[in-house]
């Protein structure tokens, strides 16, 4: 049983000059393993910033607040330490890394996270099975990381990593964007598969309600103006589907 606790998190992004801009303005959120949370909100509300701040991207500066995983101070950890502690961020735009093959990358990641190198044969079998479950062509194993992958292939590959690394808490940053319905189903099945195991807490960040037809969150949080402005159960997603974000955008702007 793992718990990610975010308390009064404030984050700025700066270009190195004095004009740092505060994006997150006091976020409180608790995610436990076995739970699925959706964070929904309009563009520019700070959803992705929350994801990258949790993962430790150097571009974002934490100005106040705490993030802990089972009581451990996440903010004091390096990016790789966070991943090894059990945090995972499925990225919206996974970068292409030329010359680093998918299988080499996965094996290095699995080795780092599990603390020991899996036997090559066992690993290969495991990777094949995981790829198969996500309808990923086995040839991908030998291709350069994300290079020449379509949008859908990149997202499936993120979920593949998620399934192999088995994090305690997974943050999925707009994993649904840019996917056609078939790809969305495959990706959602993947999310549900590890969600159902009950060992992972899921924080699903999305702009659209579409993915919530396939992945049912227990908790829905509406994000606007860099903070959570409303919370509820799955029924809140339906309200958003019908009414949009308009009223939150105004509320967020005026607060």
């Amino acid at each position: 049983m793992a718990t990610l606790e975010i308390r009064d998190l404030r984050v700025s992004v700066g270009d190195g000059s004095d004009g740092a801009k505060e994006i997150l303005r006091g976020v409180d959120l608790t995610v436990r393993s076995g739970e699925t949370h959706a964070i929904m909100g309009p563009n520019g509300s700070g959803k992705s910033t929350l994801a990258y701040a949790i993962a430790g991207h150097p571009k974002y500066e934490i100005t106040a607040g705490t993030v802990t995983l089972d009581g451990e101070d996440v903010l004091a950890m390096s990016v790789d330490e966070r991943a090894r502690a059990g945090l995972f961020l499925a990225m919206q735009y996974p970068v292409e890394v030329p010359g680093v093959s998918v299988s080499n990358f996965l094996r290095s990641a699995v080795t780092a996270v599990r603390g020991e190198a899996p036997k090559l044969r066992v690993f290969t079998k495991e990777m094949k099975a995981a790829m198969d479950a996500l309808s990923i062509d086995p040839d991908f194993a030998q291709r350069s990381l994300n290079e020449g992958f379509s949008g859908g292939e990149k997202k499936r590959h993120e979920i593949l990593q998620l399934e192999m690394l088995k994090p305690k808490i997974a943050v999925l940053d707009e994993t649904d964007s840019g996917l056609d319905v078939d790809a969305l189903k495959v990706v959602s099945e993947g999310i549900n598969r590890f969600g159902a195991a009950g060992d992972t807490g899921v924080l699903l960040i999305t702009h659209y309600t579409r993915i919530l037809r396939y992945v049912r969150p227990e908790f829905v949080h509406v994000f606007a103006g860099g903070r959570i402005v409303e919370e509820g159960g799955p029924e809140l997603a339906e309200v958003l589907e019908n009414e949009g974000y308009e009223k939150y955008v105004k509320a967020g702007a005026s607060s």
Binding site: A55, G56, H57, P58, S78, V79, D80, R82, A83, R84, F88, L89, M91, P94, V95, V97, P98, G99, V100, N104, F105, S108, A109, A112, V113, S144, L145, Q161, L165
Partner: peptide, 20 residues
């Protein structure tokens, strides 16, 4: 960042990128 976000320590990530 991408490699580190998957648990790979920075020095190893650097090697992987150069090697690749």
């Amino acid at each position: 960042f991408y490699l580190q976000a998957r648990g790979i320590p920075r020095d190893e990530a650097r090697r992987m990128v150069v090697r690749g």
